[in-house]
Computed example of a mutant assay.
Amino acid sequence: MFSLYQKLNDDVEISGIKYPLNASFDVILKLIDLLKEKRLSDINKLRISIKLVFGRDTELSELSLETQAEAIRQVFDKYLKDSKADKPVKRDLQGNIMPELEEDEKEILYSINFDAEYIFASFMQAYGIDLIEQQGQLHWFKFKALLAGLPEGTKFQQVMSIRSWEKPSKSKDAHETQMKKLQRIYALPEEESEVI
């Protein structure tokens, strides 16, 4: 959780040992994509997740699958889990808890992957931040806060405004026709359904 008065502690504690992790925005985005990957088994997802988040040389990769699953669950709870929803827990073949991305019930207006160019351009426009140069540096919580605070004049906010536009009345006019055309142009593909 993002806090203005607490230092960001990017580690998890397993059996009294703290394991440092990389919580930069690009690593967390890769983790999200990995968790949604359908071609990998749960065990392979777990092993790749450990190396992605904790580094290739982490001692966690030598511990039991249950311990590794607990470490990833802590990462998921700390960085990705929406505290508002309590969904049933999914388990892998060995009974280990597997993290799962929670979906918001409201309409999804953006996709980090599909809208990457708009997000990149908007960060440059609004903050002068080059997200490519910030890979491995910009913390996930900071990224989320900056994304949520993008001003209306940015391309990302314009596209979100178009996607969320609804006809104000039953009258059909040129504005409605134009907005519906823009909604089709900027619509997300069906397979994009991530929530952050």
Rank of each mutant, 00 (worst) to 15 (best):
R91C: 00
R91E: 02
D92A: 05
D92K: 01
D92G: 04
L93D: 14
L93G: 14
L93E: 15
G95S: 03
N96M: 01
N96L: 01
N96W: 03
N96K: 00
I97F: 03
I97V: 13
P99S: 02
E100C: 01
L101R: 02
E103W: 04
E103H: 06
D104V: 12
D104C: 05
K106M: 00
K106N: 09
I108Q: 10
Y110E: 13
N113C: 00
A116R: 08
A116F: 14
E117M: 09
Y118N: 08
Y118M: 10
F123R: 13
F123E: 15
Q125D: 08
A126L: 02
A126K: 14
A126P: 05
Y127P: 05
Y127K: 04
G128A: 08
I129W: 02
L131H: 02
L131E: 02
Q135T: 09
Q135M: 15
G136T: 11
Q137R: 12
H139I: 01
K142Y: 02
K142I: 10
K142R: 05
K144Y: 13
A145C: 03
L146M: 15
L147M: 10
A148L: 00
L150H: 05
E152R: 11
G153F: 15
F156Q: 09
F156V: 08
Q157L: 02
Q158I: 03
V159P: 12
M160E: 10
S161T: 12
S161I: 00
S161E: 05
W165Q: 09
K167V: 00
P168C: 07
P168K: 05
P168S: 07
P168Q: 11
S169T: 13
K170E: 14
K172T: 01
K172N: 06
A174Y: 13
A174C: 10
H175A: 11
E176P: 01
M179P: 15
K180I: 03
K181L: 04
L182E: 14
L182S: 06
Q183Y: 06
Q183E: 03
R184Y: 01
R184F: 02
R184K: 12
R184C: 00
A187T: 07
